[in-house]
Design a protein around this nucleic acid. Structure first.
Lengths: 334, 334
DNA sequence: CTGAAAGCGCTTACAG
DNA sequence: CTGAAAGCGCTTACAG
């Protein structure tokens, strides 16, 4: 018998198929002794409930679909590790509820898909990933408009149900930390025209806090490049060429900051001696840098839990705009 | 209408439900005009085939389950990035076949699960992840024995259907590269008693090639620590204390190598000046190190494709023991 | 080329 | 507390 059914278990336990179902689902009103006999029969046969039949009947699959948007043509190993970490925390939150996680990496029209809930495969969908793939975000905006709802990390705003870090506070903490360390010639390096609001929020929090302390930061848009790291390298070179006296930099993300770090070294600057540097995201690679990267670290466990909770909320009621707390982790670079 | 069914589409298109099913599945023998009318009706209603009903009927879910074994208590962001990259390439291979990917991170008895295929949720299961969690691998060995088969990356051997890198060749390439660079006092740093064979293979390939060239490498077992990076730091300190004249190190993995790099710097060694260093895995963080890490990089696209292909093979016929090619990527550290 | 009908394996309202 | 039966939404053999 390749795959036993509940009828096979019923026969072995000497009860009806309905009783097997009730016993295995821990429905109330099943005799304890009967329940035990059914459990034993199921174990002996290696019986496992068929999830398709069960989900079809219950109209609920107890699974979350997670879409991670990538850069077109990007190697999978080049995906920003922040998103892998977020994926991991979403997986943890999902499994803590006994849910399954369906994962999909999408980058172009060739593999765009937003119908996981419509097909019954998942009860809710979460979208995370690079902010730089506009085509992808446009696709998901259309999907949302067509009724294929989802919750996302760090979105452009209103049409989406979103969640993001406490970016403004993170920016403020960065400014305070740099100024407390005696830095006065500050710069922010980050995308200024991203479709997503998070970078703007980091910049604005940083600028406001610095300005309040009498410092006006330079704002630097990183040049276009293959990825954030390459952008960081180039941005550091440009910035130092134009403003050789900069002594404190806040980069909008860790990958960008790691590039900036390399760029600084290449232009002969010591970190943190000549220039103090702070990133954002708390990715593991930051701890491996030399010097280790000081960063703003969002509480990823909270993020995963909140994303899953928000996604599972009935479509009618979703609290959009949840903020995930961030903390400054001071390491070697600032 | 919350979720239209094929009956709704049938009514709108003025055909029977069976015709809708045939038209949407591109079954042969459907009039072109009928097919178009059905497609239009489906589009207008936003109809998507219910995958549970479909899978139940077809007895195939077109999904792969991927289990990633973690260290107990390990933070999700601390998972070795090699496994995230492998996850990404498995996702790519899966989606290229039009399959879905169910992802599960497991670390202890609290969340061990191997019944994805038995429950019909997936057509096949792949297991990857840390070699250091023996409890987990024991659990999966039992599952395998109980008939819950799977394909895994870098396994202990015979009871499993496995696939791994061409570790022996990688070890040889490392030895050749170090010796060609003039190094003579070589060491291998890596687990010597791992339940998995991969580290042994890397060591043996390295040792054999070095010995053939008249060099006998020192073999160093890294001390126990929270993760590979921490092990690497400690291992470098130990090794240099005992053998101060070592001038070439091959570390069994990149995370270990990154730790060794830090340990070398802490003991005042320059890399590659005093000591040349080679890792294994090709993780992204290696490119961010200072100096960038020379490494043996497996072809992850091939690995993902092969893992999926092998897992999907009929249970009767599985070619175990496929080898994934590796290439030496020379960067700054050696 | 198309339709009526059986059946995939469950869950649960209904009856006892 | 337990059983017989309906029905979740598909796919496809069978009949026309």
């Amino acid at each position: 018998m390749l795959r036993p059914t509940s009828f096979d278990v019923a026969e072995r336990a000497g009860v009806s198929q309905s009783t097997v179902s009730r016993a295995l689902r821990n429905s109330p009103g099943v005799n304890a002794e009967t329940r035990a006999r059914v459990a034993a029969a199921a174990r002996e046969l290696g019986y496992v409930v068929d999830r398709h039949a069960s989900s079809l009947r219950l109209k609920s699959s107890e699974t979350i679909a997670l879409v991670t948007i990538c850069r077109p043509g990007e190697d999978r190993s080049a995906i920003n590790p922040f998103y892998f970490a977020l994926l991991g925390s979403i997986a943890a939150a999902t499994s803590a509820r006994g849910f399954n996680l369906l994962v999909s990496f999408q980058e172009s029209a060739a593999n765009f898909r937003a119908d996981f809930v419509a097909s019954g495969l998942a009860d809710a969908m979460i979208v995370i990933g690079t902010t730089s793939n506009r085509t992808a975000w446009d696709f998901f905006a259309e999907a949302q408009a067509a009724g294929l709802g989802f919750t996302c990390w760090g979105s452009p705003g209103d049409p989406f149900h979103w969640m993001r870090s406490d970016n403004g506070i993170g920016g403020r903490l960065a400014a305070e930390h740099l100024i407390a360390g005696g830095r006065r010639r500050l710069a922010f390096i980050g995308p200024q025209r991203s479709p997503q609001r998070q970078f703007d929020e980091r910049r604005d929090g940083f600028t406001a806090a610095a300005t309040a302390r009498g410092v006006t930061p330079i704002l630097a848009e990183p040049p276009a490049a293959s990825d954030r790291h390459a952008q960081g390298v180039a941005a550091a070179r440009d910035l130092l060429a134009r403003h050789p006296d900069v002594d404190g930099i806040f980069a909008a993300s860790d990958m960008l900051a790691l590039g900036v770090l390399q760029g600084l070294k290449e232009t002969g600057r010591s970190v943190p001696g000549d220039v103090a540097l702070i990133g954002f995201d708390g990715i593991r690679a930051g701890t491996l840098a030399d010097p280790a990267l000081t960063t703003l670290e969002p509480d990823l466990d909270a993020a995963g839990e909140a994303l899953v909770a928000m996604a599972l909320e009935d479509t009618g009621f979703r609290r959009s705009g949840t903020r995930i707390p961030v903390r400054l982790v001071a390491r070697g670079s600032a």
